[in-house]
Design a protein around this nucleic acid. Structure first.
Length: 672
RNA sequence: GGCGAUGUAGCUCAGUCGGCAGAGCAGGUGAAUCAUAAUCACUCGGUCGGGGGUUCGAAUCCCUCCAUCGCCA
C-alpha cells in the first residue's frame, strides 16, 4: 500500500501553531524538509512541499481578545512571524496552508461527514480535570494537588458531552500494518516506542469542543453546538490541501499520496497512531514515512520560555545569514537525536568548515587560475582529469545524495566535506605555484587547476540543496553558466562538461567571526592583494614538480579518506610478497568468516594461511586460484589456527576481492 | 513501577559478522607560501561505565550492578 506508483514526492512539515514564537526547532524541521525537497527536485522528481500554520483553538481566541481583535484579524497579523521567516531561510515550499482558509475548512467538514456516515463517530460524555491554558484533559492520577502535571497551573473539573472517534476499531489493523512496514517510522527507536504504545488498548479520541467554551474553530456540520478540536483540525491539512488541488478531491490527492511527514519527536504519537487510523477510516493508505527528529538543547539545557533561552532563528539569520544557519543546524548533530546549540559551536562551524575549508579553497583556486591563465582560461585537458579526482567525485553520488535522501544530513555533509578536504590536499600535493615556475610544465599546471575547478563545481552542485545561495556564489565565481544541474552533469559524465573555466577572483565566501560572532577583517585596513596576472615566464625551476619528485597521494588513485604517510622504497621492500596457489580450503570451525587455506608458495610445504573471506568466497572456488601472499608477516593465531601469511584483497562494497595475477606465474614468484 | 535505549580520547560522536580501538574539534611539532594566518603532514591523548561469564580472542555476545535519557503509567 505504501508503494503506490506515484512519482511525486509529497513532503510536509507540521503546521505550526500561529500563536507560538518561532524557535530553532521550527526552523530545524522546515529546513530539513526543504533540503529533501530541493534534493529531489535537483534530480528530477516532481515535489510538493507543504508547510503552514495552525490557527484555531482556545489560545488564539484568548490572545485575540486580549488585543481587542477578531481572531481572524489577529492571526492575519501574526502570520508573518512564520511566513517571513521561511522566505528569509530560503525555504522553497510549494504551498502554504492556513487552517482558516476556506479550502481547509471545506475539507474538514467533508471528513467529518464521511466519518459520520461510516459510523465512526458517536456522542459521548466525558469527565475529567481540564487545564485551560494547555487545552487538555487529565485523569485523577495525572493531577497533583489540583495542578496540571505539565504546566503546574490549577485544573478544573469539567463534565461535558462531546463527539468521539472510534479509534479502537482500527488498532489491530495498525499493528499488523506496522509489523509489515517497520521502515514507516524513523528513527528505529521511535518505531519501537510506537509499537510499545500500541500494545495497550487505545481509547477513543475526543474530536470536538463545545462552542460555548471554545468558539474559535471549524463548525461540525451535523452538531451545531460544537467546533472541531484543534488537533484534529490541524492533522487534516495533509489531505485537505491536496483535495483542493485536483479536478476532483480524489484526483488531487491520489497524485500526491502517500506523504512523507517530517515532525519533531513531541508529536510522534499523534502522527504515528491517530493519523494513520484516521486515514484508514477515510479509506486512505498510511503515510510513506514519519520521521521524528530530536530537540535542540541550548548550552546543554532544555530550551524553554521560562528559562528564557529560546533561540530565535530570525536573529541568527540577521547576524550570520541563512546559509550558515541552515548548514549548522543540519551538520551539527544527527537528525533524529537531540542536539545542543551554542553560539560557540555555530561560530566554530562557520570559521572552520565554511570559511577555512570551503571558502579558502575557492579563494586559493580561483586566485591561481586567474593569475596563471588570465587570458586563455583553464581548458579541459585532452587526457581528461585526474583519476583520483574522478573516483572521489563519483563517491559523492552515493555518499551525499543517498544519505541526504535517507535523512542522514550530517553524514551527507560530512562526506561532502571529505571531498573538500580532498581538494585541499590535491592543491598541496600538486603545488600549482611550483608548476607555474617552469614554462615546460604549463600543461600540467592547467590540468591540475582544471581538476580543482571541476571539483569546486561539483561541490557547489551537491551543496546546493543545503546552501542554495552559497552554491550560486561558487558557480558564479567559476563563471559557470546558470541553469546547470546535476542532471546535465550525469548526462555528460566526468571529467566535466565545462570546456573552459574563465574565472575571476572574488571576495571571501564567508567572513570569519570572532567569539562574539562579529565579522573579522573586512574593514579595508588590509587591502586584498588581488592576484596580479603573471603568466609563468622563465622563472627558475627550483623544485621539480610534485609529480616527479615523490609520492603525490592525491594522484595515485587512492580513495580520498585515509591518506597514509609517504614511505621510502626501503620501507616498501620490507614487505615480502609472493604468488601462491591455493591447494586446500576449509572453513575454520565455529567461525563465520574465517577459512583455513593451504597455500603453495614454492616452499617445501604449503603454508597455512587463515583468511577472513568466507563471506566473499566459497572454499571450492578458491582451490587452484593464484593469490598474492605477504610471506614475512609475523604468525598470528586466529580461532586456534596459526596463520603464517596474509592474502591481499581489495575491499569492495560486497566484501572482498582477492588480488591475483594477470598471466600465469609459478608458485613463489616474487612481487615487486 | 512497566517497556526501551544509551554509556568509547578533554568535547561531539563512528566502530558492519567477535579478529591489532577510530574520526572531527581542541592540544603539540613541523612543512609549505597559492589562499580569508587559510592549508598540508606528523603527533599527544583510552581501565571502551563497574564486575562477572562464553570464547583461542569481547567495545562487540550473555548475566549483573551503577549512571543518564526516552515512551508509557
Amino acid at each position: 500500500m505504501a508503494d503506490l506508483p506515484t512519482p511525486w514526492v509529497y513532503l510536509t512539515t507540521p503546521i505550526y501553531y500561529v500563536n507560538d514564537v518561532p524557535h530553532i526547532g521550527h526552523a530545524y524541521t522546515t529546513i530539513a524538509a526543504d533540503v529533501l525537497a530541493r534534493t529531489h527536485r535537483q534530480w528530477g522528481a516532481p515535489v510538493f512541499f507543504l508547510t503552514g500554520t495552525d490557527e484555531h483553538g482556545q489560545k488564539v481566541w484568548q490572545s485575540a481578545e486580549k488585543h481587542g481583535l477578531s481572531p481572524q484579524v489577529y492571526v492575519d497579523r501574526i502570520l508573518p512571524r512564520f511566513r517571513d521567516l521561511w522566505s528569509r531561510l530560503a525555504i522553497s515550499n510549494d504551498d502554504f496552508v492556513r487552517t482558516t482558509q476556506p479550502r481547509h475548512i471545506k475539507g474538514v467538514s467533508e471528513v467529518l461527514t464521511r466519518l459520520r456516515e461510516k459510523g465512526d463517530l458517536y456522542e459521548g460524555s466525558y469527565e475529567g480535570w481540564y487545564c485551560l491554558p494547555d487545552e487538555r484533559f487529565w485523569t485523577d492520577k495525572d493531577v497533583e494537588n489540583g495542578l496540571c502535571p505539565d504546566c503546574h497551573r490549577p485544573v478544573e473539573r469539567i463534565s461535558e458531552t462531546n463527539i468521539f472517534f472510534r479509534m479502537s476499531r482500527y488498532q489491530d489493523w495498525l499493528v499488523s500494518w506496522y509489523e509489515s512496514h517497520p521502515e514507516a517510522i524513523r528513527p528505529e527507536s521511535r518505531y519501537n516506542e510506537i509499537m510499545g504504545f500500541l500494545k495497550k488498548p487505545l481509547s477513543d479520541l475526543c474530536i470536538s469542543r463545545p462552542k460555548s467554551r471554545v468558539p474559535w474553530g471549524i463548525p461540525i456540520p451535523f452538531a451545531p453546538d460544537y467546533v472541531t478540536y484543534v488537533w484534529f483540525d490541524a492533522l487534516l491539512n495533509y489531505v485537505t490541501v491536496p483535495w483542493s488541488l485536483g479536478a476532483t478531491p480524489e484526483e488531487g490527492l491520489s497524485r500526491l499520496w502517500p506523504a512523507t511527514h517530517i515532525i519533531g519527536k513531541d508529536i510522534l504519537t499523534t502522527h504515528a497512531v491517530y493519523w494513520p487510523i484516521l486515514l484508514a477510516a477515510l479509506d486512505l493508505p498510511p503515510p510513506r514515512l514519519i520521521f521524528a527528529h530530536g530537540w535542540w538543547t541550548v548550552d546543554g539545557e532544555k530550551m524553554s520560555k521560562s528559562r528564557g533561552n529560546v533561540v530565535d532563528p530570525g536573529a541568527l539569520v540577521d547576524q550570520f545569514g541563512a546559509d550558515p544557519v541552515r548548514f549548522f543546524l543540519l551538520r551539527e548533530g544527527q537528525f533524529g537525536q537531540d542536539v545542543d546549540f551554542s553560539r560557540e559551536a555555530l561560530i566554530n562551524r562557520i570559521n572552520r568548515d565554511l570559511a577555512n575549508d570551503l571558502g579558502n579553497l575557492l579563494s586559493r583556486v580561483t586566485a591561481m587560475a586567474f593569475r596563471y591563465f588570465p587570458e586563455t582560461g583553464v581548458a579541459r585537458p585532452e587526457a581528461g582529469g585526474s583519476p583520483a579526482l574522478k573516483e572521489a567525485a563519483e563517491a559523492l553520488l552515493p555518499q551525499v545524495r543517498l544519505r541526504t535522501l535517507s535523512l542522514e544530513f550530517h553524514r551527507a555533509l560530512q562526506s561532502l566535506w571529505e571531498f573538500v578536504a580532498f581538494l585541499n590536499r590535491h592543491v598541496d600535493a600538486r603545488a600549482p605555484w611550483v608548476l607555474a615556475r617552469d614554462p615546460a610544465l604549463r600543461e600540467d599546471l592547467s590540468s591540475v587547476l582544471y581538476d580543482l575547478l571541476e571539483g569546486l563545481r561539483l561541490t557547489a552542485l551537491y551543496l546546493a540543496p543545503f546552501m542554495p545561495e552559497t552554491a550560486g556564489k561558487i558557480l558564479e565565481a567559476l563563471e559557470v553558466p546558470a541553469g546547470i544541474s546535476l542532471l546535465s552533469y550525469e548526462t555528460h559524465g566526468l571529467p566535466g562538461l565545462e570546456a573552459l573555466y574563465r574565472v575571476r577572483p572574488s571576495g571571501p565566501l564567508f567572513a570569519k567571526r570572532d567569539a562574539q560572532g562579529n565579522p573579522l577583517s573586512e574593514e579595508g585596513e588590509k587591502p586584498r592583494k588581488s592576484p596580479s596576472p603573471a603568466p609563468a615566464e622563465g622563472g627558475t625551476a627550483v623544485a621539480a614538480p610534485a609529480k616527479d619528485s615523490g609520492p603525490a597521494p592525491a594522484v595515485t588513485g587512492e580513495a580520498p579518506a585515509p591518506e597514509k604517510t609517504p614511505i621510502d622504497y626501503a620501507d616498501f621492500q620490507k614487505v615480502q610478497l609472493k604468488t601462491g596457489v591455493v591447494r586446500e580450503a576449509v572453513p575454520v570451525p565455529k567461525s563465520k568468516k574465517l577459512l583455513r587455506l593451504s597455500v603453495d608458495i614454492g616452499e617445501a610445504e604449503p603454508r597455512t594461511v587463515v583468511a577472513g573471506i568466507s563471506g566473499s568466497y566459497s572454499p571450492e572456488e578458491l582451490v587452484g586460484k593464484t593469490v598474492v601472499v605477504v610471506t614475512n608477516l609475523a604468525p598470528a593465531t586466529l580461532m586456534g589456527v596459526t596463520s603464517r601469511g596474509m592474502l591481499l584483497a581489495a575491499s569492495t562494497e560486497n566484501g572482498v576481492s582477492l588480488l591475483t595475477v594477470d598471466r600465469p606465474a609459478a608458485p613463489g614468484s616474487g612481487i615487486k
